[in-house]
């Protein structure tokens, strides 16, 4: 009996794994998000190399020193790079199409990840006419504040 070949081809077992987390923000990010609620963007500065970070790192990744100094950051910046996303995947936060952007906010020394919005994104040919690396952008605040990165709703293009 046990010599019979299997009647069907090998199967798959479908499953879903759900794992809940609650992560501590710590002092720095807590302060950063509290400030966002008040429409202020705060970064930290390394006492040794003077680089200004946003999000505000608690220590400088290169000098490995604590970043004690907080500085207020401007709300305009330059597009360092961007991409137009057409890609759907399970559990993604932003639904396509959306524009992911790396913004160099004035006064900082690193790029911040966010999104560009405020106009029709459905035709990427039109989008690529408008969005260019090196272009200027400005923060648009979310009317509803929750103390997370989307208190900045998006970055809008500043026309030349």
């Amino acid at each position: 009996m046990a010599d019979e070949k299997p009647k069907e081809k090998p199967r798959e077992m479908k499953a879903q794994v759900t794992v809940p987390y609650e992560m501590a923000m710590g002092r720095n990010w807590h302060r950063f998000f509290e400030n966002l609620k008040e429409e202020r963007i705060m970064g930290t500065k390394c006492g040794k190399c003077s680089r200004v970070f946003i999000p505000p790192r608690s220590f400088c990744p290169r000098c490995f020193e604590d970043n004690e100094e907080w500085v207020e950051i401007g709300q305009e910046g330059t597009i360092e790079t961007w991409c137009y996303s057409n890609l759907m995947f399970y559990g993604q936060t932003l639904k396509p199409p959306f524009i992911a952007v790396q913004v160099h906010l004035d006064g900082t020394d690193v790029g911040l990840q966010h999104r560009i919005a405020g106009f029709d994104l459905s035709d990427f040919e039109k989008v690529r006419e408008l969005v260019k690396s090196g272009g200027r952008v400005r923060v648009v605040w979310n009317k509803e504040k929750k103390g997370n990165i989307f208190d900045i709703d998006y970055f809008e293009l500043i026309p030349e």
Binding site: A15, Q16, A24
Partner: peptide
Amino acid sequence: KEYGTIVNTVVLPYRWALGQTWTR
């Protein structure tokens, strides 16, 4: 002092291949 937390639930779908042996 209490600082904020973020609740983050990770939900991921799977389809595990049983192969010949486990299917049988």
